[in-house]
Amino acid sequence: MIYLTRKAEFAASHYYHNPAFTPEENQRVFGKCANMNGHGHNYVLEVTVKGEVNDRTGFVVDLKELKDIMNREVVDAMDHRHLNKEVPEFAKAIPTTENIAIVAWKRLAPHMKVAKLHRVRVYENADLFADYYGEE
């Protein structure tokens, strides 16, 4: 078994707001992130797949194919977008780093054929990241 990790970057804006909360609760729970004008980050997506090395190609996965899937399913959908307004999953779920990792996993997992998805890591910045390993 070998693990392979590929990185991609995207920049996006978001805000944190739960319509079920009062304005005071939103402010208390989400702090600066509650500002409804939004703010942005340079996100880094790290996708780790696992599998056996193919005897003939020496690959665990075709990198070009993995890159295309990551671009199509996550980067194109989120890069230079407003996550709350332009990514359907975040119409209800709050676009925290945790939820972005889960959404990225759900978008990627159905397209993984040869290698299996092992981990999706999303960095909001160098000092904060979330890891999702699927339903363990």
Partner: peptide, 10 residues
């Protein structure tokens, strides 16, 4: 849905 969250301090 269990997620791991990592924060870095200096």
């Amino acid at each position: 849905m269990k997620v791991h969250l990592t924060r870095r301090y200096h």
